[in-house]
Design a protein around this nucleic acid. Structure first.
Lengths: 209, 209
DNA sequence: CCAATATATGAAGGATCATTCAGATTGAGG
DNA sequence: CCTCAATCTGAATGATCCTTCATATATTGG
């Protein structure tokens, strides 16, 4: 990420003292909670501040406006997810296709599921902001990581690796989001996750050339 | 759909004269335009009315509030998409798996793409409303339609048709949304669509039992 | 212990919006 | 042509919200 956020979305200043870091963290956490408890349309600077136990003014010392807060929150979150997936990919260079797929699906799914409340909250917040740059940067990192992994497979070579890879990512990302939004029962979610691996694997097998 | 919208989201009254129908249509269309031109956070009753060429009061004669308007808009749209997919499924009862998958993916994809502006606008509007019932009803219709189609295949029988079907739908719906949101270049979109068919087909082949 | 700097406060300004309603206008049916 | 119901109007109301800034408190480095 760190794709130089649009100037108008940059934080105002970074916390330097310890208490300030605590404050900013509290603000982030409060944002998630308000988002979940009240919904996007009731995500209010006052409400967030109140929940974070600080005053509104404090928030405005770090973020020039609400959008910047949401932007930073998403950036933070996507960074973590991206790190996780990148690590998983790197660890499976040279593995079999089956292992790669399983690792990729699991890494992404788990990263999203681990704090499913945050995931859900952010899926909802996204609408409010111009996050094209964020998505772009995230997609770029993912693309690089998985392409490199796939290319390292000893048992497969793909005619159009760019397309295969783009498809794979769209399918995985999209499916996870769909499952989240439909709020399916836990066991069904787990089943679909496993089926998704199967599906991706059979796709890759069919795409070898 | 017609899943009895939550009472508080029901329209206030239906247009009976011709001019009223025109008005309501204009309001719907204006809503989409405002959504696209200004974004969700600037979707204002006044703005919608202005763009529709009517007064604010008029809109409130048909919808008790903004949410009801968005709800109705989504209902309308999902109804059309559902109809299309149902028809496609019905037409392919007894076909080969390959034909079924191709038909399903094409029907859904085209329904979403045909007026991609509307699709994009509604993906954005969804956040603002309690549309769980809507999604549920839509999912139910789709599930019934595709399950019936798959079950009619002469060349395949699935161990767990419920799971296979749920996976298929989550993957297709999710992927389409992801492609829309990333706003990939047209040719890439077409490529992914075709790859999605391939992928679903190889999944179904692998799931036969 | 004392600047200098970082951090926190929250009432108030200014703006936007959703929603109402009393009254005007238009169409339908007799 | 006339009446009643349907439809439309848009200024006014009341509420909510974002953002600022003058002031107060806390921390750090010297």
């Amino acid at each position: 990420m760190h794709a130089t956020p649009p100037r108008h979305l940059s934080p105002r200043k970074r916390p330097v003292q310890a208490r300030a870091t605590v404050t900013v963290d509290a603000i982030f956490e409060a944002t998630i909670q308000v988002l979940l408890a009240e919904g996007v349309y009731r995500l209010t600077t006052t409400r967030v501040a109140e929940r974070a136990g600080v005053s509104v003014g404090t928030m405005y010392q770090y973020f020039p406006h609400k959008q910047a807060l949401l932007y930073a929150l998403n950036e933070r979150y996507l960074d973590i997810v991206a790190d996780r997936v990148e690590t998983a990919c790197r660890r499976h260079h040279g593995a079999t296709t089956a292992e790669m797929v399983e690792a990729l699906v699991m890494a992404y799914w788990d990263a999203k599921t681990e704090r499913s409340d945050v995931t859900r909250a952010l899926y909802r917040s996204v609408v409010e902001l111009d996050n094209a740059a964020l998505i772009e940067a995230f997609a770029g990192r993912m693309d690089a990581a998985t392409t490199a992994m796939l290319a390292s497979a000893p048992d497969a070579r793909y005619a159009d690796i760019v397309l295969v890879n783009a498809t794979l990512l769209s399918v995985i990302f999209g499916t996870v989001r769909n499952v989240f939004e439909r709020n399916l029962p836990e066991p069904m979610q787990a089943d679909i996750r496993s089926q998704l691996s199967t599906m991706c694997l059979s796709y890759l097998e069919a795409s070898k050339g």
